[in-house]
Lab assay of single mutants.
Amino acid sequence: QLNAMAHQIQEMFPQVPYHLVLQDLQLTRSVEITTDNILEGRIQVP
């Protein structure tokens, strides 16, 4: 299920590496919260 959620987020934010999306999802278990984390700059994109 997390993989499906990660792919959904990757479609919206292809610039964010998959492993970072998955790592955040493991903590949040939420597409909405992880999306917010990306938008708020809480996930550092190399």
Rank of each mutant, 00 (worst) to 15 (best):
I33Q: 12
H19V: 08
G41I: 03
D24H: 03
L39C: 09
L2K: 01
I33L: 12
I9Y: 00
Y18D: 03
S30F: 03
Q23Y: 09
V31N: 06
P17H: 04
H19Y: 13
R42M: 06
V31W: 10
L2S: 03
Q15S: 12
I43S: 01
A6T: 04
Q23R: 08
D24W: 07
V45D: 09
L22K: 04
L2F: 11
D24T: 03
H7R: 15
R42E: 02
T34F: 01
D24F: 06
L27H: 10
Y18P: 06
E32S: 11
E32M: 10
M5T: 04
A4I: 12
L27K: 12
T34W: 02
P46M: 12
A6E: 01
H7M: 14
R29I: 06
Q8V: 11
Q10G: 08
H7Y: 13
I38P: 00
I38G: 01
T28C: 05
I43L: 14
L2C: 09
N3V: 15
Q26R: 12
Q8R: 14
L2R: 03
H19W: 15
T28Y: 06
V21Q: 02
R42S: 04
G41Y: 06
H19L: 10
L22N: 00
T34E: 01
E11G: 09
L27T: 10
H7G: 08
H7Q: 13
A6Y: 05
Q10Y: 14
I38M: 04
P17L: 06
T34D: 02
A4D: 09
Q44N: 10
V16Y: 09
I43H: 02
N37F: 03
I33N: 07
S30T: 04
E11C: 14
N3L: 15
I9A: 00
Q15V: 06
L27A: 09
L27V: 12
Q10E: 05
D24N: 06
E32P: 07
Y18T: 06
A4F: 13
Q15I: 06
Q26E: 12
R29L: 14
M5G: 03
N3Y: 15
Y18K: 07
Y18A: 06
Y18G: 06
Q10A: 14
Q26C: 12
H7W: 14
E40S: 15
Q1R: 12
A4Q: 11
N3E: 15
V31R: 08
E40Y: 14
P46K: 10
L20D: 05
P14A: 05
Q8A: 13
R29P: 01
Q23N: 08
P17W: 06
D36L: 15
Q15W: 15
N37T: 02
F13S: 01
Q44K: 12
A4K: 12
D24C: 09
P17A: 07
N3C: 15
M12F: 07
V31S: 07
L25W: 02
N3H: 15
L27Y: 11
L20R: 05
Q23A: 14
S30W: 02
E11K: 15
M12C: 08
V16S: 03
Q1L: 13
V16I: 15
Q15H: 15
D36Q: 15
Q44W: 15
N37Q: 01
D24V: 05
M12Q: 10
T28L: 02
M12W: 08
T28Q: 02
I9N: 00
S30E: 02
I43M: 07
L2M: 09
E32F: 09
A6P: 01
Q15A: 10
Q1Y: 14
I43D: 00
P14H: 04
L22T: 03
M5C: 08
Q10T: 12
H7L: 14
I43N: 02
L27P: 00
L22S: 02
N37G: 03
G41H: 06
E40P: 02
Q10F: 14
Q10K: 13
L22I: 11
E32V: 10
Q10P: 00
L25H: 01
Q26K: 11
N3R: 15
Y18W: 13
L20T: 05
Q10V: 14
